[in-house]
């Protein structure tokens, strides 16, 4: 293997990693905060992509790439909060919340995916990228769209990290995640924080959808594959800390890039899942984490 190949593998691993980090963030924050696993997360990704297409593309409202992306992310925030209200809140105090929300979010995913199908049809679409062309920097050749994506995601992740660690609202969200009752007794608005958390997760998933939609083709089920990858990431990383799923996302991205190069496209998912099962057997709390919430 020569150096340019290595660089291109690392580069595609990085691109995958930032996408996975975005997707895993939403899953992990919902998991830690509400104690549930959101199977509708993949559908959020698809919905975000379609909304961005609708707002941004010349064939639809034609507001342009960035306006479309911003509007889609904002809309996904609202949709996420509404989904939480409809699919999760009814079981807030139910002892079987984990199982019940598995089926409601699975059903929610079916509903959203089919609604996308009804509204936009099954035909493949693509979001026109913000920038065309390539950036060349020494040995690094990169599509401009990918560079934009990496930059935006990096900024987003830093912003999210700062929000969760430094702002009172972010700290309150983390507090609710760890002890709902103590948070209530402190006068925090737990229901609002839950809705905000779900909204935030959906918005970030929507952003991931925007990027995926502009580098690949879109279909109503486009979120299924990313959801599975995000699942691997979350398990590998553990959910104790915000940062651990980010590390895991890059690890998975790079492993996937190498595995695709050496083992082939077909076997790559098997490699990832096998690796994940291995990690779970050896270290159930994840590579980077401490098991924190096992319901």
């Amino acid at each position: 293997m020569d150096l340019p190949t290595l660089i291109s593998i690392l580069q595609s691993g990085l691109a995958l990693g930032v996408l996975y980090a975005l997707m895993a963030f939403g899953l992990a924050i919902v998991w830690t905060t509400l104690g549930i696993f959101n199977f509708a997360h993949g559908a959020f990704i698809a919905a975000g992509a379609y909304l961005a297409w609708q707002f941004g593309n010349a064939a639809a409202f034609g507001l342009g790439y960035w306006a479309g992306a911003v509007l889609a992310v904002a809309a996904m925030f609202v949709i996420g909060a509404v989904v939480q209200l409809l699919l999760v809140r009814p079981f807030e105090r139910h002892r079987d919340i984990v199982l019940l929300t598995v089926i409601t979010t699975l059903a929610g995913a079916t509903i959203i995916t089919n609604l996308l199908n009804v509204i936009w049809g099954p035909r493949m679409k693509q979001i026109e990228p913000a920038l065309d062309g390539e950036i060349v920097f020494g040995l690094v050749h990169m599509r401009s769209q990918e560079a934009v994506m990496i930059a935006v995601v990096a900024v987003t992740l830093f912003a999210l990290g700062w929000f969760l660690l430094r702002t009172p609202l972010g700290r309150s969200m983390r507090a609710v995640a760890q002890n709902r009752e103590a948070a209530q007794l402190m006068g925090l608005d737990v229901r609002l924080l839950y809705a905000l958390t779900f909204g935030l997760a959906a918005a970030v998933a929507g952003l991931a959808g925007v990027f995926i939609g502009s580098i690949r083709f879109m279909s109503p089920t486009m979120g299924d594959d990313p959801l599975q990858k995000a699942l691997v990431v979350v398990i590998l990383g553990g959910v104790a800390r915000f940062t651990s799923s980010v590390y895991a996302a890059f690890a998975v991205g790079i492993i996937e890039a190498f595995s695709t190069y050496f083992v082939g496209l077909y076997w790559t998912p098997a490699v990832l899942f096998g690796l994940m099962i291995l990690v779970l057997i050896v270290k159930p709390e994840g590579l980077f984490g401490r098991r924190q919430r096992s319901v």
């Binding site: 700290r171 983390r174 507090a175 760890q178 002890n179 402190m186 925090l188 924190q292």
Partner: peptide, 16 residues
Amino acid sequence: SPLFPELTVAETLSIA
């Protein structure tokens, strides 16, 4: 109450 296991004392006091 175990309070918030992953929050530091300072963080906990900041939201109290």
